[in-house]
Write a protein that binds this DNA or RNA. Structure first.
Lengths: 352, 352
DNA sequence: GACGAGTTGTAGAACGTTCTCCATATAACG
DNA sequence: CGTTATATGGAGAACGTTCTACAACTCGTC
């Protein structure tokens, strides 16, 4: 009320918790209590404070919150923003988060381990409340080390033995089996898989899981003990080259299971260009059931794992962990087949 | 056990600036100076401190930094993560940021003004150093209000009169003109545009700009003073419905310019299903030159605006603004045509 | 030797929250 | 009326940085 007070208001025009406290005629601690709806607040006080908050349009500073307590933000780490499967996961996360007071911040690692590490560290340094890592590249021990500092749920990361963090996956082994079974049911016997040729592909990755499922289903179907699995490079000039080579092989198989729609669609495209008829000369089945696969022009049969659902489940798991759960959870979803013309002329879509 | 507890004032094992200071035998302020490489540090001191930082694997807390000074993070706001054009922008941003000490955090607004506002506020509350807003929905006055609190660069937002923030755009009017000119050059005269039917579509949006360019080029080509512009709803059941209706019109035009590849590709797909031959019955030209458009199966002619480049330019502009520039900049890029089979049989791709 | 100028390092006050005590007021009980 | 329990509000110490003063020391220079 004295001269000092008169001189102070000229500072910053940011509305802080102190501004609210002054406006409501209560202490800073009281305002904080109301915000966190902590114990020991009378209805009258609560009303007065919420009114002031409203009137001043006060928003707590996330930075300051993070310094002391929770920041009400969860970090999402994406390996690659181009894969059309990932937006679905985000949609699922945002859907669950929307009605809550949490918000998602996304980091994109471009599949570089270096960047992945530094993004995770940044998110920890921001004191985010939890992390959803989508198909991370880092080994399990490292993730476990991070998980000590912050709740973590890994999506598309097969490590059911992890105790420090949760995992949410579609059953990729089963998905591959379903694909093979569908091909067998259509009468194809000469089947190969086209997988991803990555250097750092560890056993926990979805790709390796799909390979395992592929092998098992092939053996179970009596098609040899070590079925052929071709590797497609990631980067662009070599990628198409490898596919063309595959398509022009004289001993090209009759059907192919492709690890991802991303590659399956390009394969379909190149097949058309090279005059290889689908499905008459080559049946193709992809993975992810991406929007593009559903296009009439493309009409690619694919294994559907609902990215949206994966995102939702992961978010719920993360929140429960943030709120105190310590035992780790490992959740599986069962994928399903979406049949289309690339599998057989009587797919579920238009056939001309 | 209890003794250990007593002796454990070491509390959390987090390495802070204080830990480093103790380890190096200097003051906290000295460490801070080295970090910020501020004036008044001897080589000897610097060496000692950097050694300690290295030895302790110290990372400054972003939360604490944000509370006081810069946080070395820039926020990117995406309207919609599904549009394949946006990942390109992100790639551009990350490319420029990678060698610097800045990092990008992404928020997804799903085109909801409410969420857009709250994400921007959150990013401000995190004391991020700057914001890149991609195709924001908020009106210019509101953005200007935010821009007082934080440096802002808007991408895909046509408001060259804004003084509070920068804009980076492809020249969408010109892009539409190029599309029309290409159609004219192929001999088509009966041309319509398919645009986006959005309620809140304000004049600054790229869509409206493309409409303006379309009209101007049509008039210039002597094709009427108010050429037809159809509107396609965003949401999924009505969207396809509107396209089918368009395709089955008896007075269907001979050529169509579509505001986005997203819709153009679906249109192509539906055209095939309905037996409308492209380009023989209907020529189509899209916008964005998305990866899918380039597929042999799709072969969609499209206007290319390099999203990557847009992202790069925007990031550089933002950094220069963070580092002190106050005069606003409004940058334009010129788009170009990528001709493919949907425009004419002699597109630049395979024609059989 | 006194004085300024320059250089190098430090103390300590912010920043805006959370949250643990602690003080006070009121109610309950004997 | 004491005494004790219980409900309510507040003081103030963190949290980990940044950054402004300022202290201390070294050189020249007059």
């Amino acid at each position: 009320m004295s001269i000092e007070d008169k001189q102070k208001p000229q500072r910053n025009d940011r509305v802080t918790i102190r501004t609210v406290a002054t406006h409501a005629g209560v202490s800073v601690a009281a305002v904080s209590k109301v915000m966190r709806n902590a114990y020991g607040v009378s209805d009258a006080l609560r009303a007065r404070v919420t009114d002031s908050i409203e009137a001043l349009a006060y928003r707590p500073s996330r930075a300051a919150r993070g310094l002391r307590g929770r920041s009400f933000t969860i970090g999402v780490l994406l390996i690659d923003i181009r894969n059309p499967f990932l937006p679905e996961v985000i949609a699922g996360v945002n859907g669950v988060l929307a009605p809550s007071h949490y918000q998602a911040m996304i980091g994109v690692s471009d599949a570089r381990v270096q960047l992945e590490t530094s993004l995770i560290e940044s998110m920890i340094d921001y004191k985010m409340d939890g992390l959803i890592l989508v198909a991370p590249r880092l080994p399990s021990e490292i993730l476990a080390k991070f998980a000590v500092q912050i709740p973590i749920v890994a999506v598309g990361y097969h490590d059911a033995s992890a105790t420090a963090f949760d995992t949410v996956n579609a059953d990729d082994q089963r998905g591959a089996e379903i694909a093979v079974e569908a091909l067998l049911a259509c009468g194809y016997r000469d089947i190969e898989m086209l997988s991803l040729g990555e250097r750092q592909g560890h056993a926990v990755s979805v790709v390796r899981q799909r390979e395992i499922g592929f092998r098992r289903a092939m053996q179970r179907g009596g098609l040899g003990s070590s079925p052929a699995i071709g590797k497609i490079p990631i980067a662009s000039p070599k990628r198409e080259e490898a596919m063309r080579k595959f398509l022009s092989r004289k001993d090209r198989p009759r059907a192919v299971f492709c690890w991802s729609d991303l590659d399956a669609i390009t394969l379909l495209s190149l097949a058309m260009e090279m005059g290889v008829r689908v499905p008459d000369d080559l049946a193709v089945i992809g993975y992810d059931n991406s929007p593009t696969a559903a296009l009439g022009l493309v009409n690619l049969a694919s294994i559907d794992q609902s990215g949206r659902e994966l995102g939702q489940v992961a978010t719920r798991a993360l929140i429960s962990r943030i709120e105190g759960r310590t035992a780790s959870e490992h959740i599986f979803q069962i994928p399903s087949l979406v049949s289309r013309n690339s599998l057989t002329r009587s797919g579920n879509s238009t056939d001309r």
